[in-house]
Amino acid sequence: MTTKALVEIKDLNFSYDERAILKGINMTMPRGKVIAIMGSSGCGKTTLLRLIGGAVTPSSGHVKVDSQVVHELSRNELFLLRRKMSMLFQFGALFTDLSVFDNVAFQMREHTNLPESVIRDLVLMKLHSVGLRGAHNLMPAELSGGMARRIALARSIALDPMLIMFDEPFAGLDPISLSVIGNLIRRLTEALGMTSILVTHDVHESLKIVDYVYFISEGVITAHGTPAEVRESASPFVHQFVHSEVNGPVPFHYPAETYATDLNLESSVA
């Protein structure tokens, strides 16, 4: 079972300027699945993706992708590995100076020697799979948020990667685009036989499409399980998160002096 895992994370610690962001994370992500990593904003989810992509080095522990320890790879080996994975950034990160077509063709032109006619066919196929073949002449500035996200998705599957990481794929989308993207992630994962990692805080949309969920809070995994398990979870944190309650283990108030002290009420009373 472990040999089939595409991503293995073992005792991973990461600190930024002596501030611990991730503490002892262990995860296993099998091939061909959609895995969600959830947690409140600023809990280190995006950092986890950057660690998997080799953009930052862990303080201790390791991330293995396709049985290779990511932070021990040389620069060339890392670049070779990155050709087999891709990342969808929060707002798409489309290259604003290139047209939609050139954006999707970017990696093909950089990494392959395919003739332009083949590239054209491939790009149109990828664009067709996200339903935007007709938009290939537009510039990124002319796209709506949802369209940009779909183009970015087409770009990230350009070289048929084995792993795609999605950083907040649902942020700032209207309900329709949101379920379009959700469905696309599910469908493409199955059709291309790849593995998807979703970092998100959109519980409802992601629970519909994922196979497994990890919850991270303050740098540690607080809960994990299949969507069905998570919905029934007794864990107070998961309960608060899934049912979007204001108060619970994650407090509404940032730690502070008592309200009365801050407003100088106590001294006047005393």
């Binding site: 953009a55 670049f79 990155r82 050709r83 950034f89 990160a93 290259f95 990696q107 950089e110």
Partner: peptide, 15 residues
Amino acid sequence: MKATEQLEAMGMMAV
């Protein structure tokens, strides 16, 4: 390009 993560995206595409 840096602010909109385009440079990082490029790096993740092994470019």
